[in-house]
Structures are given as C-alpha cells and as structure tokens.
C-alpha cells in the first residue's frame, strides 16, 4: 500500500503517523478508540461522522486520513477533557436533545463549529447550519433549542 507520513494534532496531541493513502479519516479515528464519530450513510449526507478539521465541520467518512497532515482534528471525545462537559454537551442534556444518541456526537461537533464562527446565531441560522445532520428520534426542535441554550451559556 502507498502510504504518507503526516504530522498532525488529534484532540490536542501532536503526533507523527504513517497512514495509507487510501485510508479514510473516520477509520483512522475509530481505530484509535475515538468511536464518537459514527459510520452511517457513508456519503456526506447524514452528519453522524462529523468532526472538526481546523475548526470546520467535515464528514470523516469522505475525508482522506492524509488530510490531517499539518492540520488539527477534534472529536467529541476531547470536549470534556478538562473534566467538565462542554457547554454544548451540557445544553443537549438540559434540553433533552437526544434519545438514542447515535447522531449526537456529530450534532454536538456541528453545533460547536457553528458557535465558534457565529457565537450568537439566530434560530434560522442554527436550523440552516444543522441541515444535513439527520436525527431520527427528536424531531430536531430540542436540538435547535439546545444549540441556542449553549450560545447563551457560552456568552455568560
């Protein structure tokens, strides 16, 4: 297999890795125990595999692992690294924005990316940003409520 040596930062930890060119980011993460990002639609449609690459949300299922080279990736596992839930996670709990939880890591990472680029979004902006993140349990309303609640928490 053709492979490439990359230097990257995964959840804050800098590392040098040898990755197969044909390897996908989702597998690189899950093989390292970072299983929050889920394989689901496998075609950039559902959002269950969303992680932040240099701050922006991407579908890890359709991103080459070598794209980590010189860049930084963050997954849901990193959010409570300080011992406390991230405000987005806390808001999801408070607003009951999850049931089965399968889509939740992707939703949380997508919401976090939004609030980092737009700290006080309108309800319409939240809805638009979350289009393309599919949830089969909640009907979306509590998720949008949670993102708006998280925005308030982060501003406080």
């Amino acid at each position: 297999m053709s492979a490439t040596t990359i230097t990257t930062r995964i959840n804050g930890r800098e590392q040098t890795l040898r990755v197969d060119n044909a390897e996908l980011l989702l597998d690189l993460l899950r093989d390292r125990g970072l299983t929050g990002a889920k394989p689901s639609c496998e075609m950039e449609v559902c959002g269950a595999c969303t992680v932040q690459l240099d701050g922006l949300p991407v579908s890890a299922c359709t991103t080459l692992a070598v794209e980590l080279d010189g860049r930084s990736v963050e997954t849901v596992e990193h959010l409570d690294a300080g011992g406390e839930l991230h405000p987005v996670q806390q808001a999801f709990l408070e607003r009951s924005a999850l049931q089965c939880g399968f889509c939740t890591p992707g939703m949380v990472m997508t919401a976090k990316a939004l609030l980092e680029s737009n700290p006080q979004p309108t309800r319409d902006e939240v809805t638009h940003w979350l289009e393309g993140s599919i949830c089969r349990c909640t009907g979306y309303e509590p998720i949008v409520d949670a993102v708006l609640t998280a925005a308030q928490k982060m501003a406080a």
Binding site: E44, G47, L53, L56, P57, V58, S59, H128, E131, G132
Partner: peptide, 12 residues
C-alpha cells in the same frame, strides 16, 4: 453558495 449541499460539503 450558502445553500450548496450541507455545511460539511461546503467546508471541503
């Protein structure tokens, strides 16, 4: 451009 696909596709 703001309505192409979804936010992940637009980012990449």
């Amino acid at each position: 451009e703001r309505a192409v696909a979804n936010v992940r596709v637009r980012a990449a």
